[in-house]
Design a binder for these strands. Sequence first.
DNA 1: GTCTATAACGCGATAGAC
DNA 2: GTCTATCGCGTTATAGAC
Lengths: 195, 195
Amino acid sequence: MNATTGARERLVAAAQQMFAAQGVGATSPRQVLDASGVGQGSLYHHFPTKHDLAVAAVGATVDDALAAARRDLDPGDAGTEDPVARVVAYLERPRDALAGCKVGRLTSDQAVMDDDGLHDVVTAYFVRLLDAVAATLREAGLPDAVARDRAHAAVAVVQGGYVLARATGDPDAMSAAVRGFVALLRTPAPTEGAR
Amino acid sequence: MNATTGARERLVAAAQQMFAAQGVGATSPRQVLDASGVGQGSLYHHFPTKHDLAVAAVGATVDDALAAARRDLDPGDAGTEDPVARVVAYLERPRDALAGCKVGRLTSDQAVMDDDGLHDVVTAYFVRLLDAVAATLREAGLPDAVARDRAHAAVAVVQGGYVLARATGDPDAMSAAVRGFVALLRTPAPTEGAR
DNA sequence: GTCTATAACGCGATAGAC
DNA sequence: GTCTATCGCGTTATAGAC
């Protein structure tokens, strides 16, 4: 915590919080500046435009989120070798459902979607997350196409769970969605291809 | 299309389009006004505040969306008595995935969530949608708790599918999520309670 | 490297003529 | 019921002292 640990880091941390709570477009540089406690000149010294600040803050948030998902999916951290159990661990991880997904919410933030740099960061997050889940499901012996579709469904359930929880104001809406999906995920497939 | 069919309807229609494309908070009354072709005074005559305009436009959008879902889930319109097939019809209905859900997106719009009136309209939409899907699944003989969880999962897959499609820029991300979920939904349960 | 002051612009809303 | 003109404020960003 020396003098050089100051402004830049505080600005990014404050921006991450504000963006998670309000979105990027709805957050003014001025708000970030006030929350961080630095002066106006400092902000524009470290980040010439709002875009630069947003790329730094969103990038940090994406790195955190991806690391958390990989912990759930990693056999060592999850404490089980069973691939399906690890995907279930990812699905059932406690989440602040009413807050919404720090990354997923950016998807309906016009300021993010209109900014190529920011959009790319969000795209990379979901591509990597989907790849990680699909890879885990392939370990369970699923064919690639099935693993990919199921990974999309799994990640969609979490993202949709956030939407339902926020819409209804009830965090259990997320739990219910995950419960419903996990129950289906665990029913042993009746010999792939059979009806 | 007489003279009295003018301003108000045009304003609401324009607002619905702009809100769907940009969100409520990111759309200024001035933009709606320009898109609708009416004058500034007319807007504030019919809708004293932006809130009033938003309630009218979001309400109309929600009514449309709910009616569409009920058509998918209705035995008559769906053309099949099989309840699961009707839920699948809802899931597989063609959607403009890259545009995002007109209602679900509002969930991460601060201007909507901070406005009690608007929030209530969004809440009512999802409560009714979830009820309709759960009721259909109960027709299939599922116990209430299972039907509710599975309905949450189904609606979450669609909402999450929108998020994935927008994030990756690929409309097929939505199709993949739905495919993955429908495949699981169709595997016959191995006698409820058995392992 | 950090500060204060301020510019230029668009916002939501109002006034008042027609 | 519709128009134009305008108010007061907050925004993103810059200027220039320290």
